[in-house]
Amino acid sequence: MPDLVLKPLTALGHDAPLTESLGPWTLTERADVALASLAPRRGRAEDVARIAAAAGIALPSPAMSAMGAVFGSFWMTPEMWMIEAPFDSHSDIRAHLLGLFGDAASITEQTDAWVRFDLSGENLPHLFEKLANFDLATAPEGAATRTVIEHMGCYLVKRSATQVTIYGGRSSAQSLHHALKLAAQAQA
């Protein structure tokens, strides 16, 4: 059926991503970011570092993230990073990365494994003290960590003092959104 066109839904189940005010904070659902994990194969770390540098992909140190012109990235596990890129230009991000890294790295499509919420506003640590045991106030800009929010494993990326990204499992997007709303109500 060559004319079959599948229409995407956001993780929250809508046609368009959600933006809403949660008290003093703003929540933005982001469906415009493609994701893939990148892990050097054994003995290929130097190759991967070289290719990544040439391609403008930062491979940040543990517990950190980085933002480049096209690619963003954050550290996930020893020898594994999550790579972010604009979805419009990189909807098949794995193919892009395979073209760059070849067999030097294991690359896995992750775009739709996650729901991404960006939270912005002043005093985000006040909100996050109800969400996760992560000390957002003292974490450096760019800090990235995996943590738990209401039983849900999430990645937190501190983009700046006033912006935090949460990646949660896509299937529990509604539960995560609900948890963020309740916490914002309690802390607003």
């Binding site: 054994r42 739709d112 896509r170």
Partner: peptide, 15 residues
């Protein structure tokens, strides 16, 4: 520890 194996969950990436 020295096997060349990388693993990641993709349960939710695919419908």
């Amino acid at each position: 520890p020295d096997l060349d194996v990388q693993i990641i969950s993709t349960t939710e990436a695919w419908a």
